[in-house]
Design a binder for these strands. Sequence first.
RNA 1: GGUGGGGUGGCGGAGCGGCUGAACGCGCCGGUCUUGAAAACCGGUAGACCCGUCAGGGUCUCGCGGGUUCGAAUCCCGCCCCCACCGCCA
Length: 467
Amino acid sequence: MIDLKALRDDPERYRDGARKKNSTVDIDRILMLDTERRRLLSERENARAEQRVLEKEAGPQIGKLMKELKTAPGGAKAALEAQIEELRNKPAALKETVQEYERSLQQMEPELEALLLEVPMPPDADVPVGAGSEDNVEIRTWNPPGFDASKSFEENRGFSPKTHVELIRDLGLTDFERGVKMAGARSYVLTGDGMRLHQAVLRYAFDFMVEANGFTPVSVPVVVREECMVGTGFFPTGRDQAYHIEESKRGSGHDLFLTGTGEVGLMGLHEDEILDEETLPRTYTTVSTCFRREAGAAGKDTAGLFRIHQFDKVEQVVICKADEAESREWHTRMIGFVEALLQSLELPYRLLQCCTGDLGQKNADMIDIECWMPGRGEENAKGRPTGAYAETHSASRLYDFQCRRLNLRYRGESTGGKPVVCHSLNNTVLASPRFLIPLLEIYQNEDGSVTVPAPLRGHMGGRERIG
RNA sequence: GGUGGGGUGGCGGAGCGGCUGAACGCGCCGGUCUUGAAAACCGGUAGACCCGUCAGGGUCUCGCGGGUUCGAAUCCCGCCCCCACCGCCA
């Protein structure tokens, strides 16, 4: 959520941000509602203050008169009762006024709140303006020794590569038929070495974040309340991407949702908390199963393990002080962790600066990392794919957008003891089985086997190859 | 799933119709004392929102929502959550 006060002070910044992110949210309607809301608030407060003054005056008098009434002779009772009645009426009249303002407020507030939840975080000034992913800008590429992703796989290795779909089929690493039988389209079963490799890459990435980078390992819920989805910024805009578990027995409003990323659980950890400045930054990592409905992606990437409803992901999040320089620094470092991981596995990749249209609602800035996958891209004359980069990681910088929704703050010396909304960032460490695509395709051999990358062998019982 | 007990400030814990945004204790911060520290003593210590250039003023919040009342942390109704024991169980 954006800061309503900031929007009040500089609406054009948010209008411009919404435009750049292709959002049609009505900023002027928000300003109008906000003005009206403050007017009502102020009126109600004045009436309420007056009411309280009267209460304090009349209250003790009523109490006194009530006592007198008990012992008063019959003839005096009527006069006392009339006096009490009069004292009661004054604040009672104001009560009506207060309630009227409150009803007006209750009528308009849901609309204002709903609109505020839709306002996107304005992109940073240095983010290139663009309509969608086609306008993203390549920052740099990295190639492992002895490999050049700007050339074809065949030129690099001397033979035509199989796609990952062919590799997993030929090596018996998956069983799509039975996956679909049980769970429908985009479902799969990892079998044998497929499952083992999947677990190996996850464990390798998880250990890398904990041991080499000092992140705090945690396990988090993957079934969460709606508040958690709203707080982390995935609702209401992305509601149709989440699996919805109805809890009809308990009435509406208590339904649960499957999380599409460990980010939800990691960021939800400190919802409604005020952290001590000295405990920042918080650096967390988790490995969790992620569920995505992939609504609107019908027919896209239907083959293989690229776009699926359920996968496992090692995720990293950082919660830090509200400081732009620190946010930027962490962003760079979190990307650096992934680069180090990919380099240790010797996989070619590139960094993409996402343009404004591709940032999503929450992000001020986002860098995607794409691994090179020989089995994707345009077909050559023989009808074989020529290879392409495809997204495997996404590093987001959100400033206070997410933490404001979560009501996650910190305080300390630098804030003068006052609570200030934290900044947050997140980045993929490794998502599998998608990650198996570049891994298998790059490490395949001419005889159809796949070499197990050296760093993973410890998690594969020392195996050096599959097949 | 059943039965019982609870939800008050950073924590513990009073309050059970007005004097209570909240006693008291702990913690934390500042000060006195001390060579320094501890102890002791003194003082301070919730959050949100609105108005105001500042100083300051006001409103709301004792799990959440509604009600009763001139007045609610305190009474009533609904909901949520937590704990204990029993049952079931990965």
